[in-house]
Design a protein around this nucleic acid. Structure first.
Length: 728
DNA sequence: CCTACACTCTATGTCGTGAA
DNA sequence: TTCACGACATAGAGTGTAGG
């Protein structure tokens, strides 16, 4: 086992049992346990020298931890950080990921080169010390399950109580992660065909339940790995190679969403599947209760495939690799506290904590949004057509034609035309925006009616999303009004405006609409400053050279036609020299010249720029003297999304980066000149600087993430329901 | 300063459901 | 049949950084 390589919780057996007893009593007092459960300690029960140091058995309402060999007085008992029935690869991957530890214990070492044939590799028979066959291993697992579920003297009610307590505890930790499905038809001999899909009452997720033993082995784990191995050295490369072999052998049973993103080396030093890859794995306890979990990657890594065993042990023994049961019962406080920086943490350790913190955050929902704020007014959700008579005054001072040009520009950027319903009865127009950009949705709502509703609730860094929707008659009218001013989506809007009545014609139009989205169906048309402002509000981005005084304007788009029209318009009216370039997944229109940038921003502001008006105004004030301050201000208040949240470099970061580069360059120079001793000293100095720099950045990120978390918590505590939340 | 690229959140696109 | 809304998946948009 790996425990000897690690610092961390190492509790004496007596102490663990005592702690477990106390915690179980507490759990019973607080109503988590329906029946009183106590822990009995049985040490040296005469079962002789076996490989497993201890086992957990249920005796009536008691959970008993039994040592399987004699323990000498004063001997230290270790807690494993891993699930011992994992294969060697999973164990090492988990240890490296979660603790940064390369395990060199005999079991890992002996089996390391043999990985690839089976996920069960690395599991040695306790008697003969030979690798176990798959069948023998499965047999053991069955026995283990039988022991836990229907073994002698086990009170099913007690076990059920423990399991339901666990469910409650876990539900507190993350209510979306666990569902408890009771089933009486689970057996070990089902085949893959026995997969059923159920939606448990109250669950919004559809849940896949696999009842086959083939997939319910706790040792089976899905791992996605990069096709191309990253350029790393030592342990990581070895692991990647083996993961690659593993993948081919396993034919990964990857449920839910498939891996979309490029899999490869990541800047954070990790590798493998990206965060939006979900896995599903299941466990069936025959004849009793079927636990099923749909875990996010972070959680899965944290607990490992044997989470259920770990959880049972946690309840019985009061200890896991992640702290005591107290930490499980009050997960928010304890879990997050364990992720805050401690003085002895290395940069890598803080980075790992930050990663976990982000994973936690990404599962933390915002409170339900029931209203939104736009231009200082608060509106209830959903905002239906005609539910208000008042309008935002400034917008109505602008002529209808100008308004339509702006809206057409915005719709070309961010709008969506789709036909809806089984009968293709009509088209709908839609625009989604985050909740703090509701003003732009109000412009559409005031002009075309329709409704504004919640598209998706907030989740961690992801703000809640609102959506303006017009369907039926209002969609037809809106499309009719927008089409003449639109370029990128004119053909789609014309289709929506003239949506036919007969089913066959509708089928044809629906197919045509789909086609229009596949290629660049933009119609070159008359451009205007209002259109530019709208399009820029939707798709544009203002860049600032790192804390410098120079700025640039960028518009990214998948297809080039509309960008060409914009470029020609800018060249024709201002003589602006905008360049159109291809970039990965599309085209970019760039304006670099400082004078051009400012002129374009001023024109767009006059034409009704809204979403990016604040940024534009700030940038127009940009001078070499205030560059750093404006950069900070923008990061704080004028950003659209939370990408790269907490990672922005400030002036001192840049200064440190310059020093590191300078030291590295000096070291290289000294080496070239043959002054090896001095070069080595300089190199060391650079390494020290780098270490300090990484530590500082990681600590600040940790602090910012905690501040964000605290703000999110405040929203819950203050019964927040929609008005703008500052700093989020 | 300019450009390419990386990271990850947002905004499209689609499907389904249910009330009117 | 229309309209509104929710859920889900994912392409790509928005943003930052590194390097020439």
């Amino acid at each position: 086992m790996a425990a000897r390589q690690l610092p961390g919780p190492r509790l004496g057996l007596r102490r663990r049992a005592g702690q477990a007893k106390q915690l179980l009593e507490e759990a019973h007092k607080e109503g988590f346990l329906k029946v009183p459960v106590s822990v009995t300690e049985e040490v040296g029960d005469g079962e002789g020298e076996k490989a497993n140091p201890a086992k957990l058995v249920c005796k009536g309402p008691q959970l008993v931890l039994v040592s399987l060999r004699n323990i000498c007085q004063g001997e230290e008992i270790f807690v494993s950080y891993i699930n011992e029935i994992d294969d060697v690869l999973s164990r090492r991957y988990f240890l490296l990921e979660s603790h940064g530890v390369k395990c060199l214990c005999p079991r890992c070492h002996a089996n390391f080169s043999g990985v690839g044939g089976s996920v069960l590799n690395g599991w040695l028979c306790a008697s003969c010390r030979e690798p176990m066959s798959d069948e023998a291993f499965r047999q053991c697992l069955r026995q283990l399950q039988q022991l836990r579920v229907s073994g002698s003297g086990i009170d099913p009610d007690a076990l059920r109580a423990v399991l339901s307590a666990l469910q409650r505890i876990m539900a507190v930790q993350d209510p979306h992660d666990f569902v408890l499905v009771e089933t009486s038809s689970v057996s070990c001999d089902h085949s893959v065909e026995d997969i059923q899909f159920v939606r448990p009452p109250g669950s919004k997720q559809s849940v896949q339940v696999l009842t086959g033993s083939r997939f319910s082995l706790p040792g089976v784990k899905a791992v996605l790995v990069p096709d191309a191995l990253p350029e790393t050295s030592g342990m990581e490369t070895e692991l990647c190679k083996e993961l690659a072999v593993q993948r081919r052998v396993l034919q990964v049973p990857c449920g839910g969403r498939a891996a979309k993103r490029r899999l490869g080396p990541r800047s954070d030093g990790g590798y493998g599947a990206d965060t939006n890859v979900d896995f599903e794995w299941e466990l069936a306890l025959p004849g009793c209760v079927c636990w099923q979990a749909l875990l996010p990657q972070g959680r899965r890594k944290a607990l490992g495939p044997g989470w259920w065993k770990e959880a049972l042990l946690a309840l019985a023994v009061g200890t896991t690799a992640y702290g005591s049961l107290a930490g499980v019962v009050r997960p928010q406080a304890e879990t997050f506290r364990s992720l805050s920086v401690s003085p002895s943490d290395t940069p890598k350790a803080v980075q790992r904590k930050n990663k976990k913190l982000r994973a936690k955050l990404s599962k933390s929902p915002w409170p339900q949004l029931t209203c939104f704020e736009a231009q200082g007014r608060v509106y209830r959700l959903p905002l239906r057509a005609g539910s208000l008579n008042c309008t935002t005054s400034h917008w109505h001072d602008i002529s209808i034609a100008s308004r339509l040009r702006y809206l057409a520009g915005f719709f070309d950027g961010d709008g969506c035309v789709s036909c809806s319903g089984r009968f293709l009865s009509g088209c709908s127009l839609r625009i989604g925006q985050s909740y703090d950009q509701a003003a732009i949705l109000m412009r559409f709502w005031e002009t075309f009616a329709g409704s504004i509703g919640l598209n998706r609730g907030g989740l961690g860094m992801q703000k809640p999303l609102l959506r303006w929707t017009a369907c039926g008659q209002s969609a037809r009218i809106a499309a009719q009004l927008l089409a003449p001013h639109s370029m990128a989506k004119r053909k789609q809007l014309l289709l929506a405006a003239q949506w036919p009545d007969t089913p066959s014609e509708r089928e044809r139009c629906a197919a045509e609409l789909r086609d229009l989205k596949d290629y660049d169906s933009a119609v070159p048309g008359e451009c205007s400053w209002e259109y530019c402002a709208g399009f820029f509000d939707a798709e544009g981005y203002i860049t600032q050279a790192p804390a410098g005084a120079s700025l640039g304007l960028r518009i990214k788009q998948r297809h080039p036609k509309v960008l060409r029209s914009l470029r020609d318009f800018l060249a024709g009216t201002l003589g602006t020299d905008a360049t159109l370039k291809t970039e990965a997944s599309g085209y970019v229109l760039w304006i670099c010249d400082q004078r051009d940038c400012r002129q374009v921003l001023q024109h767009m502001l006059r034409a009704g720029l809204l979403c990016k008006a604040r940024q534009a105004i700030l940038f127009l004030r940009l001078t070499p003297e205030n560059a750093a301050r404006i950069s900070f201000k923008l990061a704080l208040e004028a950003r659209t999304g939370n990408q790269q949240f907490g990672r922005k470099l400030d002036a001192s970061d840049r200064e440190r980066a310059r020093n590191i580069i300078s030291a590295q360059a000096q070291a290289a120079d000294l080496k070239r000149r043959g002054q090896y001793a001095k070069a080595a000293a300089k190199k060391h100095e650079a390494a020290v600087l780098k270490h300090a720099d990484e530590l500082l950045k990681a600590r600040r990120e940790n602090q910012i993430l905690f501040e964000y978390l605290s703000k999110l918590q405040d929203l819950h505590d203050s019964s927040w329901h929609g008005p703008l939340a500052p700093g989020m």
